[in-house]
Simulated assay, not measured.
Amino acid sequence: MSELDDIRQALPDSARDIRLNLGSMLGNDGLPELSTDQKWGAALASAIAARNLRLTRTIEALAGAQTSAQVLEGARIAASIMAMTNVYYRAMHMAHDAELAGLPAGLRMNGLAKHGIDKADFELFELAASVVKGCESCTRAHVAGAKEHGVTVQTIQAVIRLAAVLHATATVLDTLDEPALAEVG
């Protein structure tokens, strides 16, 4: 996992806890509550949602060695749809306007039905992206959806923890100077 080690080494001492959490969660024995598909799909959806290209490419490469192309595509679909719906539904929630909230969204979301992966896993990938994007109503909906598909609260918590650590990693990486990144890579 040298790519992950490069990311971890790039994190400054002020982010030591993030570095440790990243290593333990994405290591071979990390997050036993999640299947391999759930772990890497949620990691990819979180990285995409966090919008750090270096982290996304690293997670995508690592995930590609651990899971199928279909799971990776499902994670990409979940992240892309959540990028749109998290903004829309968060705005509806913030507006506190019943008339506005009652209007149809009018947004194409075919990927919600045509993702080609396990429905419970897709809910977890949507949850991961929604947590990173900070959409309360989407987070609630995907926790409920995951539970409806038989996902345990421990699995849901593991996805939320993973999303939090990947978001924190992206945030810290975004603050680093380009020369510091070049020295590590």
Rank of each mutant, 00 (worst) to 15 (best):
L4Y: 01
L112C: 05
E183A: 09
P32L: 14
R90M: 12
M82L: 14
V184E: 02
A129I: 06
G30I: 05
A61P: 00
Q66N: 12
N52F: 11
R16K: 07
G134W: 02
T56H: 07
E73L: 01
G145W: 08
R161M: 09
E33I: 11
R161G: 07
K133N: 13
L124I: 01
G27K: 14
L176A: 11
G41M: 01
N52E: 15
L26I: 10
D29G: 15
C138S: 09
V132C: 01
R161A: 11
L44V: 08
E123I: 06
D121M: 04
F122L: 05
E73T: 01
A170R: 14
S14E: 15
G23Y: 14
E99Q: 03
D118S: 01
L62K: 13
F122Q: 04
A158H: 07
I48A: 13
L181N: 13
G185S: 12
A146I: 07
T58V: 13
C138E: 10
T169Q: 15
W40Q: 03
H93F: 10
H115I: 12
Y89N: 08
Y88W: 04
R51N: 12
N86W: 01
V71F: 00
R8I: 04
T171S: 10
M82A: 14
T58G: 06
L181Q: 15
A164W: 02
H142N: 02
H96K: 15
S24A: 06
E3T: 06
R8Y: 03
Y89T: 01
H142A: 08
H115K: 12
N86A: 11
T36W: 00
L20H: 02
M1Y: 13
L26M: 09
G27E: 11
N28C: 05
P12V: 00
S24C: 08
A45I: 00
M25W: 12
H142P: 09
T169L: 15
V165Q: 02
S130K: 00
R54E: 06
L166I: 08
G185D: 09
E123Y: 09
T152N: 03
D17K: 04
D97Y: 05
N21S: 12
N28I: 07
M92E: 13
K114C: 11
T171E: 06
S2T: 13
A163G: 04
E136C: 02
L176I: 10
R16Y: 03
A15N: 03
G74D: 14
M84S: 09
L20N: 07
G185I: 10
D177F: 07
I7R: 06
D97V: 14
S137I: 05
G23T: 03
G116K: 03
L181R: 15
T169W: 15
E126G: 05
